[in-house]
Design a binder for these strands. Structure first.
Lengths: 371, 371
DNA sequence: TGCGTGTTCCAAGGCGCTTTGACGCCAATT
DNA sequence: AATTGGCGTCAAAGCGCCTTGGAACACGCA
């Protein structure tokens, strides 16, 4: 048996609720209830609820009286109760896979999520973050769906043939992929044109006379890396330059990866005269390797990077440090979150894809081949 | 009036629930219900619930029968219903303030959160991320508490005198601060010893003969930066070196900040011979400025950084690139999340603080003063 | 006066789960 | 034979909100 009595507490706007259970005694300072609010107003819960949710059946006078009282009393409806009653979680899930090797949590995700979260809060959604240990484990998505925790999810760093796609389609949870699979039909995605970006970048290097162009790519199970490599190879083929395995590397995008691979390649008998690098962070390692080798970037060795426009790494100005293919992750986060919310509000919407344009921006890290 | 009928669907493990409302018709593929599960097992909901939650009142035979059926049917209780019934959200909130100026979402948060999220999932908690536009806006916390969205929060990047502290204490939401305020009594926090770290680092530079030591600090409204500066000044005082305003800077921790400030300082009539830098990222800008100036790091100019051990920036090995004070953010995330869960499970726990130890690791970016 | 038509409000049921008090049953005790 | 106590189970209430069908009332019209 539990008795409840509500007593006005110290602060006039708070109600304290003393709930006495046989086995425990707890005092919880709680915000106002719908019930309490309606009692206070001498109205039914229905009327108060309708007034607050802008239903037309309530007179303007009543509505404004209710709204004023709610604001004054600091009334905020219990999210979970709303959720249970309406069937909508008002929450978006972001499932970020840990990179396989080193627990690397990519800063790309962080910027993407920061941007998406702005959209969510604007539309009254919350953001739930899940870090996934293994991408092959479908239970994360099944769980999210079954637990009714989220109304939709954003899928991060998709692989060329990602098993998670089928799972999401099966459970019927709305989702948007940041990036895409090789099969890009039948689901929502937001991506940049990786293939074309790296093809153009490679062609630029070839035009500058470079013949030994190294590719420091991301892990090629990921579609973005796969497409970049495809673009790179296509440009080499069209330029009549042979593809060399020793000039290609693929790994998590860390500074140390860039340093080690570039160092090793620069130490080769016939070393590369140009590097195509998949991220700013990797390029920092490449730059370190180049200085260590006593070479000058943009003169002895050319470098083109892909620039995600991370907020704390500036690659702008009239003459940016690095020549780059450029595409904003923040923009992608914005587009993807919008798309997901649309999909949720309108479940019958046809799958949409957004291919973001990429710029090739000339900076001071490229120059004619001197070898 | 709504009629419900549950029919076995295509997949034997799914139930389809056709809910017919007067005004809308929807077919929702849903995971099994507690009700459905108990019907299927010919048991009451109570018994099934108790069996699943390991209450002792259920016989072993029944329990295992129930558990097997639940696993087979893919039953996962509705999170929101549990939450509503138990009063526990099983969710932790992380409130990350956007840096004031440039929408910078610090990679520190990302690593911290990635690490904390491991703890949460281990203990059955979810992680809800909120990006706060203004730190002065208390409504974020009031809202989280009133909406009953979370059981506790982690407070990021605290200021010396942070208004959020009072709000959190007032609403009675368990919380842990990542970092601390200047007043460090009466609440949970996890921090590193910023003061001592920067004092020791400064002393090392003084011992190496440097007299013009620049400090590229974070924003000094933040406690961590305030303490670092205090440590730096204390060491200078003890070393009998005057404090010079032109050698101190304070801003968001970006690469461009490091580059611009270091460039400007190196161009001074009497330029600094050493830099104390608050993060790896800023140090990258400093390194760029030093090379641009035609100087060699570790020889012409010494640099000590604080290294948060971000996963994609390696500063390890026998002789790391940068001499650094070192403290793992991931570790901090681990400690803070553990502490918060303890606080939640045991609300009467006394406030606890964890001061993480810091190492001063000698790398190749420091050397005796040559000026 | 009687009837439809709005307007404003309410009681009650439901979302899916936990928790409580109680009931039936059987073996062990008096 | 009557009582106790433990075990296994259940019906029902409750968490806080939304939603529905209908009631009460006032108004205009025939």
């Amino acid at each position: 048996m539990s008795r409840r009595l509500a007593i006005r507490g110290l602060f006039s706007c708070y109600l304290y609720d003393y709930t006495i259970y046989p086995k425990r005694f707890q005092i919880v300072a709680l915000q106002m209830n719908l019930k309490q609010l309606s009692n206070q107003l001498q109205l039914s819960q229905t009327t108060v609820s309708r007034a607050l949710n802008d239903y037309p059946e309530v007179s303007e006078a009543t509505r404004s009286r209710v709204k004023r009282a709610a604001a004054k009393g600091g009334y905020r409806p219990d999210m979970r109760a709303i959720s249970l009653a309406t069937g909508k979680a008002k929450t978006i899930g972001h499932v970020v896979p840990m990179a396989n090797k080193d627990d690397v949590f990519s800063p790309i995700f962080a910027e993407f999520i920061a941007s998406a979260s702005q959209t969510y809060s604007q539309y009254g959604y919350e953001l739930m973050l899940t870090v996934e240990k293994s991408r092959d484990d479908a239970s994360t998505y099944r769980g999210l769906a079954a637990k009714r925790a989220v109304d939709g999810v954003i899928l991060h760093s998709p692989q060329t043939d990602d098993p998670r796609l089928a799972v999401l389609q099966e459970v019927g949870l709305p989702f948007v992929v940041h990036g895409r699979m090789l099969n890009s039909e039948g689901y929502n995605w937001v991506d940049m044109d990786n293939h074309n970006a790296f093809k153009l970048a490679t062609r630029l290097l070839l035009d500058l006379g470079h013949r030994r162009v190294a590719l420091l790519n991301g892990r090629e199970e990921m579609t973005f890396a796969w497409l970049r490599r495809a673009g790179y190879e296509e440009a080499l083929n069209e330029g009549g330059v042979a593809i060399t395995n020793e000039l290609m590397a693929s790994d998590d995008l860390t500074e140390q990866y860039g340093y080690q691979k570039a160092s090793a390649m620069l130490a080769m008998r016939i070393s590369p005269t140009a590097f195509l690098v998949s991220s700013y962070i990797v390029a920092l390692g490449v730059r370190r390797a180049i200085s260590h080798a006593g070479l000058v970037i943009g003169e002895d060795v050319s470098v083109i990077i892909h620039d995600d426009e991370l907020s704390y790494f500036d690659n702008g100005g009239l003459k940016p440090q690095f020549t780059s293919t450029r595409s904003s992750v923040r923009k992608a986060g914005y587009e993807a979150s919008k798309l997901l919310l649309e999909q949720i509000e309108n479940p019958d919407k046809e799958p949409t894809s957004v291919l973001m344009d990429t710029q090739l921006v000339i900076g001071s890290s490229t120059g004619p081949c001197r070898a």
